[in-house]
Simulated scan of single mutants.
Amino acid sequence: MSVSSPPSPTTTSPEPPTAIRPCVTELRLSAFAGHRRAGFALGPVTLLAGPSGAGKTTALRAYEALARLGGGAAVDEVFLDASACVPDRARPDAQRRRGFRIGCTADGPEGPVRLDVAVQAEPELRIVGERLTSAGLVLLETALRDPARRCVQAAWHTAGSAPVTRAPLPDDRLGTTLLPLRVAGKTDGQRRVLAAAEQMVVALRSVFACDPRPGRMRSPVPMGSGRLLGGCDNLADVLWRTRTECGRRHALLVAATGAGCAGPVTDVLAEPLGDGTVRGLLDRGDGFRTPFARLGDGELRYLAHALVLLTGPGVLEVDPAGEVPAAMQTLTVLADAFDRSLDPRQRRALTDLAVRMGARGHIRFVAAVADASWAEGTDGVTVVHLDP
């Protein structure tokens, strides 16, 4: 594996810079499926490149799993097929136990904060170890002491009359997300633990996994379906809602669509059909409108990605940290098979759009591509090469 990290873009914005927004800057797959001792540096825009079987989708799946755990989901909700996450050829121990290990680093106001998680997949699915560290100091550590009990023993930094506080925590959820309920915040040490845990949770919470499915985007969809789904099936309904919510962002979407779709584009709109459904259309500006049903796979995938990059958590099916102001959060988009059906012009236009949004601190974009030679040396783009 090799990484190409060119200089960050110099685009400025009056909004808070990325540096004060918590964000994940490294993904670690210590032992996960086909990955062992792997670490991926993540920039505002990161392309995971490699042939089929290199583990690009696996890396994105691990990132999404951490995000869901950071959002408070139970481990059995996150890993529906945990055995598939166990490293290749891993053998069970004397107690028939097998598992996997993943982690990440989140940068933000507290500096780099590391989270490492050990999950037992067999015979029972549970979190058996967790460590939260900052500047070399262990802020939280958990370990499974008694396999017969459904809990782990936790110890967190206190720096008061006692250096650490010990207590049991459930083995089905991430301890980092439970700390605000257990730590009083009375000592400097406790406040440091809470700040680091909050930074990690905020960095992980706002993640949107996106893999548009053109076959479903062509059909009319029910109105009022809510926020955009990961497969972008309800794109037309979301357009119906967003077209009038923010004229400036919609104008940017129209401009981006014109750069990636064939023929002139003067508007992107949705048309109610009178039966409770709505369909998407491209306005050609000459009285002719092209329904989404007539667009190619590449055009629809391009349009969906452009909409995602130009919107935010209020439009997408994500669960951001509601107690943290939006100005302090960054949305991370995970795009598997990003270059599928896209021609060179479309993938370049979308990457440039991701770089522009990333420079403002709104968006971080992690995408899997078969080949990233076209993006090498692009300002604001980090290319990680994975070998099968």
Score class of each variant (00 low, 15 high):
168 P>S: 14
143 A>D: 15
180 P>V: 00
174 L>R: 08
216 R>S: 13
135 A>T: 09
183 V>C: 13
142 T>S: 04
143 A>F: 14
136 G>D: 07
183 V>H: 04
189 G>V: 03
205 R>F: 12
123 P>H: 11
192 R>S: 05
187 T>W: 09
208 F>N: 10
208 F>V: 11
137 L>C: 06
153 Q>T: 12
161 S>W: 02
238 V>L: 15
154 A>V: 06
210 C>Q: 02
238 V>R: 10
148 A>F: 14
131 R>W: 08
169 L>T: 04
121 A>T: 00
149 R>D: 14
218 R>L: 00
123 P>D: 09
205 R>K: 09
153 Q>N: 08
135 A>L: 06
139 L>K: 03
213 R>E: 15
185 G>H: 07
144 L>I: 10
154 A>Y: 06
181 L>T: 13
125 L>P: 01
128 V>P: 05
222 P>D: 02
228 L>C: 03
186 K>M: 07
202 V>M: 10
133 T>H: 08
134 S>Q: 14
215 G>A: 13
176 T>E: 02
174 L>M: 10
141 E>I: 03
221 V>A: 06
140 L>V: 00
179 L>W: 12
171 D>E: 09
138 V>L: 05
124 E>R: 08
159 A>S: 00
177 T>P: 05
204 L>A: 15
195 A>K: 00
196 A>D: 01
181 L>I: 11
128 V>W: 03
224 G>Q: 07
176 T>L: 09
138 V>M: 10
189 G>C: 04
239 L>T: 06
124 E>D: 11
210 C>S: 12
136 G>E: 10
239 L>F: 03
206 S>F: 08
164 V>T: 09
121 A>R: 01
159 A>G: 02
203 A>L: 07
130 E>F: 01
225 S>Q: 01
141 E>A: 13
141 E>M: 07
145 R>D: 07
184 A>E: 15
189 G>I: 05
132 L>C: 13
157 H>S: 04
132 L>P: 13
210 C>R: 00
142 T>I: 02
147 P>N: 00
152 V>H: 11
149 R>T: 14
210 C>V: 13
168 P>W: 15
213 R>T: 15
121 A>M: 03
169 L>D: 05
159 A>V: 00
151 C>L: 10
193 V>C: 11
219 S>E: 15
239 L>M: 06
207 V>A: 10
229 L>R: 12
219 S>L: 15
141 E>V: 05
218 R>V: 01
232 C>D: 09
233 D>R: 14
127 I>R: 02
131 R>F: 08
139 L>H: 04
233 D>K: 07
228 L>Y: 04
135 A>C: 07
170 P>A: 10
181 L>K: 13
223 M>I: 13
146 D>A: 14
187 T>K: 03
171 D>Q: 04
148 A>C: 10
138 V>W: 08
235 L>V: 03
212 P>A: 03
204 L>G: 13
216 R>H: 14
